[in-house]
Simulated scan of single mutants.
Amino acid sequence: MAPHSRPRVRLSSRQVWAALRTHTLLILVVLASICPVLFVVVASFKPITSFDSLASSTAPFTLANYLGVFADKVSIQWLLNSIIVTTAVTILTVIVDMLAGYAFAKLKFKGSAWLLSAMLATVMVPFAVTLLPNYVLVARLGLVNSYAGLIIPLLSAPVGVYLMRQFISEIPDALLEAAKIDGANPLQILLKIIVPLARQPAIVLAVFTFVNTWNSFLWPLLIAQSEDKRTLIVGIATQSLQHTQNLGAMTAQTVISMVPTLVVFAIFQRYFLMGLTAGSVKS
């Protein structure tokens, strides 16, 4: 017997036109987002002297711009600085936020609710408001133009603490009590129970932190006052202010700066999407 086929749903002309308008708008938005990126990618493989000459350029594609970037010690130093700062901030932020989230979720101490509310209230304060006080504090500590000055002020975030706190609070207390009965101390409970169970939100937090730190501009611009301490994003921007510009090298550097975030998202995409939808459906 032939399998039952689903009945076809006929759409009215109004529904067809509505769907057509929606898809057309989405395609235009995607093209508007992708075209500048494709423009830079194509330019990075061309020996151009100006962006106006790109459309009429008949020169073959070449890797000369990328070879020049990787042969430049300054560009390599910028890339290394970005890797060091971003990796350190990501790892330390996940550790600090998980510890804080565990404390707020499972450890009872006086004033915890007030402290959590005060911390979340800082989310409403724009970064520009705290920029000057943070810089003055870092300057008085002698951390300007150092890796510590680039890393320490970016550690932890109220949103990350709240994310970890909300997830850890869903872990049954009975599980933790059983571990306490078996003789586990709070640190052992954290390492052997909380950390394995909280891997998914930790990865989501790590991806967000990595992308934000890698693309951060204003704080590294203020702190990295010498060329050898600049991150790649800041280095590209400061190059654009020079009188003589190597546009081929700049476009190659721009494409290189996009690769790490794309790789990280591609690797952890499954965890990232699971983290975004976690809790949206009640069991």
Rank of each mutant, 00 (worst) to 15 (best):
G68H: 05
G68M: 04
F70L: 14
A71N: 15
A71H: 15
A71W: 07
K73C: 08
V74D: 11
S75I: 00
S75P: 00
I76F: 10
Q77G: 12
N81K: 06
S82D: 06
S82N: 04
I83L: 11
I84G: 03
I84V: 14
I84F: 09
T86C: 13
T87Y: 08
T90V: 03
M98Y: 08
L99A: 14
L99D: 08
L99C: 13
G101W: 01
A103M: 03
F104P: 04
A105P: 02
K106I: 00
K108A: 11
K108I: 08
F109Q: 09
K110W: 14
K110F: 13
S112Q: 07
A113E: 15
W114I: 14
W114N: 08
M119F: 07
T122K: 05
T122P: 03
T122I: 08
V123K: 09
M124F: 13
P126G: 07
F127E: 13
A128L: 11
T130C: 01
T130N: 06
L132D: 00
L132K: 06
P133T: 03
N134M: 10
Y135A: 02
L137E: 13
A139D: 13
A139Q: 15
R140C: 00
L141I: 01
L141R: 01
V144D: 12
A148G: 14
G149T: 11
L150K: 12
L150R: 12
I151F: 07
I152E: 00
I152S: 00
L154W: 10
L155S: 06
A157R: 08
A157T: 13
P158M: 07
V161E: 02
L163M: 12
L163R: 02
M164V: 06
Q166Y: 01
I168E: 08
S169W: 00
E170R: 13
P172L: 02
P172M: 02
L175W: 00
L176G: 02
E177F: 02
A178T: 09
K180M: 11
I181P: 12
D182Q: 06
Q188K: 14
I189Y: 00
I189L: 09
L190T: 06
L190K: 03
L191Q: 12
K192D: 11
I193Y: 03
I193V: 09
I194L: 04
I194E: 03
V195W: 05
P196I: 03
